[in-house]
Each structure stands twice: as structure tokens, then as C-alpha cells.
Amino acid sequence: MLSSKIRPLFIAALLLMVISLSVCFKPDDNGFALAREIIVMRTIGHKILLSSGDSSSRVLPVYQTNDGQYHIRFESTFKFSPDSVVSIIRQNIEKNHLPADYIVNVVECQSNQVIFGFAILKTEQTNLVPCKGRKQPKAYYSVNIAFRDTMFNALNTKYVVATGGGLIAFMLIFSGLRITIKGKKSLISVENTLAATPKVVTIWRYKFHTDDQYLECKEEKVELSDKEAKLLNILATKQNELVERGVLQKVWEDEGVIVARSLDMFISKLRKKLESDPTVRVVNIHGKGYKL
């Protein structure tokens, strides 16, 4: 039980935290802005395909990585002119008032190599646009757009208010209360629940059904073993990012013993089951881990 002196402090801190969280997670500005930016990215992808003479194939779902970089992906191969790509991206970003400083890389998906890129740096009055005029051959490409200081620009008044309120609330709590181990475990449990993995994860042309442990590609259905599904689940949540071997080897933790070649063997099995889509690869980063 809380003492009569501590109880008012606890109630005040709790109310302040509730108000701060409600302000922070109010689903108006940032959610709308992100959805709008995704639409702009899809428009860019659509116009790039049209400029290459393709009016029928799809722009695949656009996603944003943890570092704020947008990935525009395409269903089919196409060829492009760097001049057209630069013009399309600049016009759409300026028209929709997105951040003025950004870097664009066009990646050839089979080799995972950057074959063309440019930087627009309005704040420095210096733009870097190499290799213009050299048409690129037909292939699977993705277009990656990274805005400068994305995380900093996302901050606004409501987050400053929310952060300040949260700090004051914590000061009140630590001034009057001793937080118990049981309370900490409850908070961790809530956070883990909120971080639940989606039941269906998109991996380019594949739909990965995490609960039922199978891959779906058009009419094809590929069954996965328990460990294959767990490994793919880890890789799929960090697409285009390095996942260290130690993280992947946690799949074997329950067995107590990890055989050095077990991970490599199961990665090899996964590669065979992902062969239907040549744009999907599990890349070995020597001595470090793997990247999907």
C-alpha cells in the first residue's frame, strides 16, 4: 500500500504520463505524413516505369527501413535513362514539399550493387548527379531514397511536450516510490506484446505465413520446417539489413548445443525454397552473418 504522502505524488505522475502518452501517440500528423510520403514514392515508381515504356507491370509495396530510407521496388525488369529518373524524382519531391536534401541510389537486385545514384543538397547549394545520359540495360531494379535528418525533422511541438511531461512524471515517481521487480516485469510483458510479429510478411513476390510456416508465390506453396520458419522470420523482419550469426543461432538455444554448420545448412535449404523469385537472395556477409 502507498502511504498518504506518497499517494498524491503517484497519482499526479500517473496523470501526467497518461496525458504525455496521449499527446505522443495521437494518430494525426506523423501517421498521415508517412502515408502521404509512401504515396509520393509509389507515384515516383509509376512514372519511372512509364518513362521506360512499361504501363502494365506493378510497383511493389513501398517500405521504409529503420533508418528512414524508402525502398521503391518493381514487379518486372525494365530499362531506364538516368536523366529521366533524376527529373521524375526531383519534380515529385519538390511538388509535394518533401525535405530538400536527399540521396537516391538505384540498385540492381540480382547483384545487390548500386549502379546509379545522385544527391540533391539544397542546403549546401551543391548537387551531385554523375553518369547522366548513360542508359541502363533491362534488369530488376529498386530505387532507394534517403532524406537527410529524417528522424530530426519528424520532431515537432507535441513530441517536445510529450517528452517533457514524461520526464517530469518519472522524476515524481522516483522521488516518491521504489519500483518493484514485479512492476518492471509487467511493463516488459506489455512491450513484448506490442512487438508481436505480423502473421503474413511480404518478401518481394513471396507471402510468408509465419504462423502456418509456409511461403506462397503465385500458385506455388512451399512448406517450411520449424527452424527454417524461425530463421526466415528473423531475416524477414530485417530485410536488406545484416543479421549477425549470433542472433540467428538463437534458434537453437532450446537444444543447448549449437553445431557450427547447422546455421549454414539451414540457410542453404532456405535459399532453395526461395528460388522461384530470382530477386530474393540470402547473402552471406563473411565472418559476420547473413542479409535477406
Rank of each mutant, 00 (worst) to 15 (best):
179 I>P: 05
52 S>F: 00
189 S>I: 02
134 R>M: 09
139 A>Q: 03
111 S>R: 10
106 V>A: 04
158 K>I: 10
45 G>W: 02
216 E>C: 00
153 N>Y: 11
240 N>Q: 09
14 L>N: 05
96 N>Y: 10
47 K>F: 12
12 A>T: 15
85 V>F: 02
143 V>T: 12
132 K>P: 02
172 L>Q: 02
70 Y>H: 15
275 E>L: 06
152 F>W: 14
9 L>C: 07
285 I>W: 04
5 K>D: 11
135 K>E: 11
119 A>V: 09
137 P>K: 03
236 A>P: 00
89 I>Y: 03
78 F>L: 05
245 R>L: 03
4 S>K: 14
233 N>S: 13
96 N>E: 09
191 E>R: 12
39 I>T: 14
190 V>N: 06
48 I>D: 01
108 E>G: 06
141 Y>F: 08
255 E>I: 12
72 I>F: 06
173 I>M: 14
73 R>C: 06
126 T>V: 15
161 V>L: 12
66 N>Q: 10
60 L>Y: 08
137 P>A: 04
277 D>C: 07
16 L>D: 03
155 L>F: 14
235 L>G: 00
112 N>A: 12
12 A>N: 06
164 G>D: 04
39 I>H: 10
203 I>M: 01
156 N>Q: 13
221 K>A: 00
156 N>R: 14
153 N>W: 08
292 L>W: 00
122 K>D: 13
279 T>N: 02
161 V>D: 01
140 Y>R: 01
58 R>I: 01
103 I>V: 11
200 V>H: 00
68 G>Y: 05
186 S>A: 12
114 V>G: 03
124 E>N: 11
268 S>W: 08
115 I>F: 05
10 F>G: 13
125 Q>R: 11
71 H>L: 08
281 R>P: 01
9 L>A: 07
73 R>A: 10
30 N>S: 11
55 S>L: 08
177 L>C: 05
162 A>R: 02
214 Y>S: 03
271 R>M: 02
135 K>R: 09
276 S>G: 10
244 E>A: 14
172 L>E: 04
111 S>L: 07
238 K>P: 01
203 I>F: 00
91 Q>T: 15
99 P>C: 05
38 I>Y: 14
266 F>Q: 12
137 P>L: 02
140 Y>V: 00
100 A>V: 09
212 D>Y: 11
109 C>K: 15
145 I>P: 01
137 P>G: 01
164 G>E: 03
201 V>H: 00
102 Y>T: 00
16 L>E: 04
213 Q>E: 00
203 I>R: 01
105 N>Y: 08
159 Y>A: 01
83 D>S: 12
91 Q>A: 14
196 A>G: 10
43 T>Y: 06
278 P>A: 01
245 R>G: 03
241 E>V: 15
207 K>L: 08
107 V>M: 08
113 Q>Y: 12
272 K>T: 09
163 T>R: 04
59 V>S: 02
54 D>H: 11
291 K>E: 13
187 L>Q: 09
284 N>P: 05
155 L>V: 14
84 S>T: 06
224 L>K: 01
